[in-house]
Amino acid sequence: MASPIPDPRETARRIAGSRTPAETRRGRGATANPDGRFERAHREAFDDGWDAHQDAHNMLATSRTVVGIETARTLITYNTSPDIGFDRSINPYRGCEHGCIYCFARPNHAYVGLSPGLDFETRLFAKSNAVAALKHDLARPGYAPRTIALGTATDPYQPIEREHRLTRGVLEVLARWRHPVGIVTKSSLVLRDRDILARMAADGLVKVAISLTTLDPTLARRLEPRAPHPQKRLAAIRGLAEAGVPVMAIVAPIIPSLNDHEIEAILKAAREAGAREANYVLLRLPRELDGLVSDWFSEHYPGRRDHVFSLLTQARGGKSYDAAWGTRMIGEGPYADLIRRRFALAKKRLGYPEERLRQRTDLFRRPEKPGDQLALF
């Protein structure tokens, strides 16, 4: 069934109507919790003067992190997008506690009947059978190895990974069967797995991409409230590089008139920490994300909102978002061209290599299944 395309004005109205008090969502990114686009009924909060204390208590309760268990039939997800560098990915978790307001995966929460707003960062799901499902996927007859992207939608090293350790389990499987992987994260928790990553790196099987949105801790706390401090991410780059693990810095997202002035500084800090590659993504606002980000600006930077969206629409063909392949990540037009040139010049000046590191696929060994005949040698 095709997903309905929300009207921007209606979306903005619904989000404003679902805004929750700031004191009940401390440490969260979204300002509101609008109903998912597939829901038949839409609710709006209003103060009727009754049970104000109980309402506040209920809001605090719903802002706590709740982790549900999800059983995955298969762990590897495939795509045919021509403008990204991988055709398969793994996400051990659904939803992300980091709470990045700009996360393009937020609208996916509507597929499970939850909100792309606060629900996305408080109502999480852990794929408890991730290790078994991955072994099954890799053992399929005819499976051909190519680099798996780990953490493309939600961060594989978000805070709940400390308890559930699903990402650690996935890496143990990939390392055992010598399967290539590329990791995307903004968490310094990745350093916990240096033992596995260093072994894989020695065989050319891994690359880690660390997301750096800003070096300003105040802005980072507003944009990404439960993600590690920018200095901890730089420390993660340094720690991985010292362990021989190749690291890419991703300046993402670049938000017009908010963090675009930091491009050169971020690239310099990442290079000095040991990053050998760098890339960027211009802010993407699919579906409900348009209204969520707009409402976030209304609360945190109301004077900048119109200017930010004006620059963004200039780079998106007159819309806040254009999903066209080839331009959806970087935009087009004068503003997008300026960002592209600045990024390229900074990389060249800082000595980033032009050639991107590729992972090996020729070392892969298929997991044995029950009943398989053992090899003689």
Rank of each mutant, 00 (worst) to 15 (best):
S3Q: 08
T11C: 10
R13D: 11
R14I: 08
A16H: 10
P21H: 11
P21Q: 06
A22P: 05
R25N: 08
R26A: 12
G27R: 02
R28A: 10
G29Y: 01
G29I: 08
A30S: 15
P34C: 09
A41K: 13
A45K: 11
F46Y: 15
D47L: 08
A52H: 11
Q54P: 02
Q54L: 15
T62V: 09
R64N: 04
R64S: 06
T65P: 00
E70N: 10
T71F: 11
R73F: 03
T74F: 11
D83R: 05
G85R: 13
F86V: 13
R88C: 12
N91I: 03
R94P: 01
C96K: 01
E97V: 02
F104M: 10
P107W: 05
D119I: 02
F125H: 06
K127E: 05
A132N: 07
K135G: 13
D137Y: 08
L138R: 07
R140T: 14
G142P: 06
I148F: 09
D155C: 07
P159N: 05
E161W: 01
E161D: 07
E161K: 00
R162I: 07
T167D: 05
R176T: 15
S188K: 03
R192F: 02
I196C: 03
L197Y: 11
A201F: 09
A201E: 10
D203Y: 05
L215P: 00
T218P: 00
L219R: 15
L219P: 02
R226D: 00
L234W: 03
I237T: 07
A241S: 12
P246G: 09
P246K: 10
V247D: 00
M248D: 09
I254V: 15
I255E: 05
I255G: 02
I255M: 13
P256T: 04
N259Q: 07
N259E: 06
N259Y: 03
E262C: 06
K268L: 09
N279R: 14
Y280S: 06
L289Q: 11
D290Y: 15
F297H: 09
H300G: 04
H307K: 12
T313F: 01
A323L: 11
A323N: 14
G326H: 00
R328V: 06
I330R: 13
F343I: 07
K347G: 07
K348C: 01
G351P: 06
Y352R: 02
Y352W: 08
P353H: 09
E354W: 11
R356V: 15
E368S: 14
Q373E: 13
L374D: 10
L374T: 12
L376V: 14
